[in-house]
Design a protein around this nucleic acid. Sequence first.
DNA 1: CCGTTGTGAGAGCGGTGCTCTCGCTTGAGA
DNA 2: TCTCAAGCGAGAGCACCGCTCTCACAACGG
Lengths: 242, 242
Amino acid sequence: MSTIRGARERARIEVTAAIKDEARRQLAAEGAAKLSLRAVARELGMVSSALYRYFPSRDDLLTALIVDAYDAIGEAAEAAHAKAAGQAAVHPARWMAVACDVRDWALAHPHEYALIYGSPVPGYTAPQATVGPASRVGQVFIGLVRDAHVAEGLAVPSLAAELRPEATRMTADLAADLPPAVVVSLVSAWAQLFGLISFELFGQFNRVVEAREQLFRQAVHELGRSVGLLDGRSAGAAGTRI
Amino acid sequence: MSTIRGARERARIEVTAAIKDEARRQLAAEGAAKLSLRAVARELGMVSSALYRYFPSRDDLLTALIVDAYDAIGEAAEAAHAKAAGQAAVHPARWMAVACDVRDWALAHPHEYALIYGSPVPGYTAPQATVGPASRVGQVFIGLVRDAHVAEGLAVPSLAAELRPEATRMTADLAADLPPAVVVSLVSAWAQLFGLISFELFGQFNRVVEAREQLFRQAVHELGRSVGLLDGRSAGAAGTRI
DNA sequence: CCGTTGTGAGAGCGGTGCTCTCGCTTGAGA
DNA sequence: TCTCAAGCGAGAGCACCGCTCTCACAACGG
């Protein structure tokens, strides 16, 4: 698979990478809306039409960046989980660690975050290639909760009757070994976690919240409880810092 | 103030409104990124340069649409609150009604929602004029919780020590008559609520969640509890539908 | 009545995404 | 080893974009 096929193939791979790198640079500098094929080509000393040999359209270049961004934030989450698990931290602490590292990644890469968790671009519909990388962060949280379930059990939250069919469907799709009520809470918590990050990053907290990290930690702690993570052995005060 | 000043002024008001209407139409059809001054002018039978008599730049037109969108969703929230309060519903039910109507507005106006709660446009920084309208939805929730506090009290959540200074600051800014811990929870709940809506609207729930309204209701119910709203007189099961 | 002021039209600037054609180079198969 | 299709970059060009400037006209206030 990874055999060296020849100078041509090698050059193609290198040029493709260079285009993505420059595009990512412009993305970080100016945001997705100002990403310009011509500007990328100019910076690379190419002519704009040559770029179309590598990406059929601007949207395809954006798709590549989207996939990369999903992979990057997914990798950050996986690394945070691995590190926290390696330190044998209790599960609420792991939950907190992963959430904080996801937030840190978002703060460090605001435009890439906006690309994947912000408003979708106009006519653009996410191609199939993005669904795998897009699920990596969620998979980390699922794995974390699964570990907690196996290791020390969960305080299974209650589940409205009307939500039961959907809960069983989601459970079959996402984590068949978890209680349906936990899966529902987990999906809700997932959306709410990114709601906190998005509000901070997109400026809704301007002039409202100053101590954003502390607020985030408090909310994430509460979200961990809502999915059933047990606070160590005995239940401490709800608001204690982990 | 509202005297009829003459044909010129009148025409200006009408043309300005027509431009905004057409722009909103294009916004709904194609999204903010594809909103084109030339296209708006073309549709209105004007020449593009004439538009600059009414809006100094494309960004100014966008700002006007942003303010309108904030006002629209704020108005929806206020109407929902007034209606629910008029029906003398218990406070968790009012909370649910407002949240659901906000979500309904978002589903009905996805592009306008994306304009105000999605990724900010590249170089654009929200002008001062937007902060008033932007706070209307939040004010509704604050008022609702204040009513509950006065009428039947709140189950004040716990508050981490490290968050106390920020909590008192926010309380002074937002709702001096509410317990600081409630204000913190309320701000968190606010962000998390829009996180749920954004995930649904921006496609993160695709292939994951089907019964979105039910999931939303369950999460909103839980958020209401998290800010201290009391479940009627006695505490029912956590997951019961309101 | 006259001059100021608001207005629309038009041309034009530099930019964009994208297409097409034209040669050159590369590399695999005859 | 030669040949020829495929890959590639350059360039011209299309239709669009936001925005600026000038010019002529119409409305309006003094």
